[in-house]
Amino acid sequence: MSEPPRAAAYLDVDGTLTTGVTLFELLRFDAAERGTDREAVAFLRTVAAMREAGVPRAERNRHYFTWWSGRQVEDVEQVGRRWFASVRTGGSTAGGGGALRPQVVSIVERHRRAGHVVVLVSGSFAPALAPLAEVLGGAHLLVTVPEVEDGRFTGHVAVPMIGEAKVRAVAEHARREEISLPRSAAYGDDLSDAGYMGLTGHPTVVAAPGAALAVEGGRRGWALVAV
Score class of each variant (00 low, 15 high):
residue 7 A to N: 07
residue 13 V to T: 01
residue 14 D to E: 11
residue 16 T to S: 01
residue 17 L to P: 01
residue 20 G to D: 12
residue 21 V to F: 01
residue 24 F to K: 12
residue 25 E to T: 13
residue 25 E to G: 13
residue 25 E to P: 03
residue 27 L to Y: 06
residue 27 L to H: 07
residue 27 L to Q: 07
residue 29 F to G: 01
residue 32 A to C: 05
residue 33 E to P: 01
residue 35 G to Q: 09
residue 36 T to E: 14
residue 36 T to C: 05
residue 44 L to K: 10
residue 44 L to M: 14
residue 44 L to R: 13
residue 44 L to I: 07
residue 45 R to Y: 02
residue 46 T to R: 13
residue 47 V to P: 02
residue 47 V to C: 10
residue 47 V to W: 07
residue 48 A to F: 06
residue 49 A to W: 12
residue 51 R to S: 04
residue 54 G to H: 06
residue 57 R to W: 08
residue 58 A to V: 09
residue 60 R to I: 14
residue 62 R to P: 00
residue 62 R to S: 02
residue 64 Y to G: 01
residue 69 S to A: 15
residue 70 G to R: 13
residue 72 Q to H: 07
residue 77 E to A: 12
residue 77 E to C: 06
residue 77 E to M: 08
residue 81 R to P: 01
residue 86 S to G: 13
residue 87 V to C: 08
residue 90 G to M: 14
residue 92 S to E: 15
residue 93 T to S: 12
residue 93 T to M: 13
residue 95 G to A: 11
residue 99 A to C: 05
residue 101 R to Q: 13
residue 102 P to E: 12
residue 102 P to F: 12
residue 110 R to P: 00
residue 111 H to D: 14
residue 112 R to A: 15
residue 114 A to C: 04
residue 116 H to F: 03
residue 124 S to L: 01
residue 125 F to A: 14
residue 127 P to G: 09
residue 128 A to F: 03
residue 130 A to D: 04
residue 136 L to G: 05
residue 136 L to K: 05
residue 138 G to F: 08
residue 138 G to V: 07
residue 138 G to C: 05
residue 139 A to I: 04
residue 143 V to N: 02
residue 144 T to W: 00
residue 145 V to Q: 09
residue 147 E to M: 04
residue 148 V to N: 04
residue 148 V to F: 03
residue 149 E to D: 03
residue 149 E to F: 03
residue 151 G to I: 11
residue 152 R to P: 01
residue 154 T to Q: 12
residue 155 G to P: 02
residue 155 G to S: 10
residue 161 M to V: 06
residue 161 M to D: 01
residue 163 G to L: 03
residue 166 K to M: 00
residue 170 V to S: 04
residue 171 A to I: 05
residue 171 A to Y: 11
residue 174 A to S: 04
residue 176 R to W: 11
residue 177 E to P: 00
residue 177 E to C: 10
residue 178 E to G: 07
residue 179 I to H: 08
residue 181 L to M: 07
residue 185 A to L: 11
residue 190 D to T: 01
residue 194 A to K: 10
residue 198 G to L: 08
residue 199 L to P: 03
residue 200 T to R: 11
residue 201 G to Y: 05
residue 207 A to D: 14
residue 210 G to P: 01
residue 214 A to P: 00
residue 215 V to P: 00
residue 216 E to T: 03
residue 216 E to V: 02
residue 218 G to A: 15
residue 218 G to V: 09
residue 219 R to I: 03
residue 219 R to H: 08
residue 221 G to H: 08
residue 224 L to R: 11
residue 224 L to G: 04
residue 225 V to M: 14
